[in-house]
Design a binder for these strands. Structure first.
Length: 198
DNA sequence: AGCGGGATTTTCT
DNA sequence: GAAAATCCCGCTT
């Protein structure tokens, strides 16, 4: 069977997510998120990530598998969406082998197309640089809610496209946590204007 | 530019 | 009952 005719199975290779979560967090930088919304496609470049693992006290998966963290323990390449602070959604890419509780929080992205839809979801008065420079801002801009928890990122309407990396990466500590503050599992593209906190 | 507080609900102790 | 992988507004330098 020729590869060009095998259209009934996913064509995106996300096997780079199968290894350690720290590695996956690095390699997700520069990758593209595509959200196909009707006639308009939102395209974003991932510029800031954070790794979370079941051996890490800051991770939702640290206390074991629960209804909330179920997706984190599943196969890599799915979306883990959680609700926090009574009003915000945040999105993660699940990593590692099936059975391991690990995921990468997408903290910020750079819009490439679909500015109209992003402004409509976030508010017309929001400056371009503020549209997607934070995990909850990003979800609101895309319209991601709990409904997308468990979504396979190789399938429409939300796709994760691997990409070459031609930039410098900064590694530092994570934002907004009270446990395991010293673990340097936050990564971002150096000098990128859409990173939430330099 | 930087700080402090409030919003608001899920999840676990 | 408290904390939470956050954001926004208003106030002070």
């Amino acid at each position: 069977m020729d590869e060009s005719t095998s259209q009934n199975r996913p064509s995106i290779d996300l096997s780079f997510l199968d290894g350690h979560v720290e590695d996956a967090a690095r390699r997700l930088l520069g990758c593209e998120l595509q959200f196909i919304k009707g006639d308009q496609t939102i395209r974003l470049k991932i510029v800031e990530t954070e790794a979370y693992h079941q051996t890490d006290a800051a991770s939702h998966s640290y206390k074991g598998q629960t209804p909330r963290t179920d997706v984190m323990f599943g196969p890599a390449g799915r979306l883990y969406v959680y609700f926090t602070y009574g009003m915000h959604y945040c999105m993660n890419v699940v990593t590692g082998p099936d059975g391991e509780g690990s995921a990468v929080l997408i903290r910020a992205a750079e819009p490439l197309s679909g500015w109209d839809a992003l402004h409509k979801n976030r508010g017309e008065h929001i400056a371009d640089k503020e549209l997607t420079n934070g995990p909850a801002k990003l979800c609101k801009a895309l319209g991601i809610t709990k409904d997308y928890n468990g979504h396979d990122l190789r399938m429409p309407p939300l796709l994760l496209i691997p990409h070459e990396q031609d930039f410098a990466i900064v590694q530092t500590t994570r934002v907004g946590i009270s446990q395991a503050k010293e673990i340097p599992w936050r990564f971002y593209i150096k000098d990128n204007q859409f990173v939430s906190k330099q």
